[in-house]
Design a protein around this nucleic acid. Structure first.
Length: 284
DNA sequence: AACTACTCCTGGAGGC
DNA sequence: TGCCTCCAGGAGTAGT
């Protein structure tokens, strides 16, 4: 599923192809996919120019003319594909169906026609993705700190901040604490497993029981895993996009396969209803 | 306040 | 091959 690195990669790629384009028409086949807290409609997008693209946690933010923002969350299985005719200009998100599939198809639930004749297609086989429209002035409400915590690639993400956050959770498994967006914004199931493996921490350890040294290592591991994924191709892109020598994944999706560190089999368990792959030898 | 359970949805995997 | 059942999973919400 698209997590922080996948959304950031999509943001960078789309920034080269849609910035400055005007939206001529916007359409969603499923009304539930539109979230408009102030009553804006898709018609309000018409004629707006796309300014810079931003990102907060797993939200992709389109800064539009007239002080409007469109925030796209791909959730589990959303993908956004920018095409001119048959030519794909940018694509990202969940790789199923394949990015080169003809558009639209039955899982395609949104289209944004741009003034140069190109189209941004929104596809989502689970229909969990959401398009939020709101005045840019209301973005702070969307980013309410009760719902979205530290940005792990930002300067404010330090071992001290992470420690302060984890201290609030006496018994919660560290894996669950990492997945809670109010603690750490942007980490999902894949990179939580990867970061814990890199840091050598068992996923069921109580979050509040980690030593300062362990928290320091975990902080570094989270940053390393996320930035490595952005630089080297990411877990959700087709294999062709993942460069030779990519260091991940080392744990997630590898249950039954030998741990790349110690050679013993990676195990799969449930932590807070999420499947979790880890090495029982390397992670304590 | 901290934590758990349930909900949404359907492609894909596994069983027979 | 085909039919059936079950699972995955982000995050909002309700319940304990």
């Amino acid at each position: 599923m698209p997590e922080l690195p996948e959304v950031e990669t999509l943001r960078r790629d789309l920034s080269r192809t849609v910035v400055g384009r005007r939206i001529e028409r916007a359409e969603l086949t499923k009304p539930k996919m539109l979230v408009a807290p102030t009553g804006l409609t898709l018609g309000d997008l018409h004629g707006r120019t796309i300014g810079r693209l931003g990102r907060r946690a797993k939200l992709l933010l389109f800064d539009l003319s007239g002080d409007l923002t469109m925030a796209l969350h791909l959730k589990l299985a959303g993908q956004l594909i920018h095409r001119r005719g048959e030519t794909t200009l940018a694509a990202g998100g969940h790789p199923v169906p394949r990015f080169d599939a003809p558009m639209p198809h039955r899982a395609t639930h949104g289209r944004f026609d741009l003034d140069d004749g190109s189209v941004m297609w929104l596809t989502d086989i689970r229909q969990f993705g959401r398009v939020t429209l709101l005045p840019t002035a209301l973005l702070p409400e969307l980013f309410d700190e009760k719902r979205l915590g530290i940005e792990p690639l930002g300067g404010e993400f330090t071992a001290e901040r992470l420690a302060a956050t984890l201290r609030r959770h006496r018994t919660l498994p560290i894996k669950s604490a990492l997945l809670d967006q109010a603690n750490l914004a942007g980490v999902g199931n894949i990179y939580a497993d990867e970061a814990l493996h890199t840091a050598g921490i068992h996923p069921t350890r109580p979050a509040g029981g980690l030593s300062p040294g362990e928290i320091g290592g975990l902080c570094r591991a989270i940053r390393d895993v996320l930035s490595h994924a952005i630089e080297n191709g990411v877990a959700d892109l087709p294999a062709g996009r993942i460069r030779e020598g990519a260091a991940f994944p080392r744990a997630h999706g590898r249950s039954g396969l030998p741990c790349l560190t110690c050679g013993r089999p990676i195990e799969r368990i449930k932590v807070g209803a999420r499947s979790t792959d880890f090495c029982p030898t390397c992670q304590r």
